[in-house]
Amino acid sequence: MPSSKTREVSISALLLAVTLVCVAAVLLITVYLMWAGLPAISEIGLGNFLLGKEWASTSSNPKFGILPFILTSVYGTFGAILIGVPIGIGAAVFLSKIAKGPVKRILTSAIDILAGIPSVIYGLIGMLTLVPGIRKLFGLPDGASLLAAIIVLAVMILPSIIKLSAVALDSVPKEYEEASLALGSTPMEAYLHVSIPAARSGIIASIVLGIGRAIGEAMAIMMVSGNVANMPSLFGSVRFLTTAIASEMSYSSGLQRQALFSIALVLFAFIMIVNALLHLILKKGKKHE
């Protein structure tokens, strides 16, 4: 029988081997996306691909410019942040500093449930309520638009922004607020001028997380954005990076299919940048403490 020492070492090695599945998965995803996505980029040309304003993958003279998708994803995300962040931070302040007892419990559960609702349900309601609403309100031929997608995305990123910001606000030492109150400020002023700045890194992290969510969302906005490969406009039908992949994948072939993988690679690059940013902010925040 091996000594318990060698046994422990081999257990540790075995566990490590299983743990490396995560690393393997990340490598696999990266390598496969590059392997599948780079050929089309090199064939189309990086400049033409990223900056081309026209996407006509199935025409006899196909064009593969994804600038419309990139811009739509950027505008859509930006718009969602613009709407979602103020509401999110407001709700986080309420949740963390003002709400007590049953109100706090109900709000917390509501946020958890919102976070758990499948994105197809957001899409479904957006499709049947929001889209007709926008059509009527603005007198458009079709309400499926960037605006509809922005509103759906804003709602979908709310739970993560609220939760993370509330955690950050919760961890602000009470003494800070008390000091501010002792200097004659109102509670609200203390929250705005002391608590929020003190919870800055957590709140920024929540926003970056929201950005990641918004860029990566596919199904819900597929159902409300109209899905035409236009350059983005608020009331026009648009296609995002994610929906570009989802909408053509099932019937694509040849260079078109390869180009879809290239889009995924671009999306992946965006996400990795956002993740790196998040990582940096959280690390900095930790150091700060």
Binding site: C22, V23, I29, G216, I245, F268, N275, H279
Partner: peptide
């Protein structure tokens, strides 16, 4: 490993699907 876990939790599901 930590980096890999962080990355995995940030990757959008459409990329997982692909």
């Amino acid at each position: 490993i930590e980096f890999a876990i962080e990355t995995l939790s940030g990757i959008p599901s459409i990329i997982y699907g692909l």
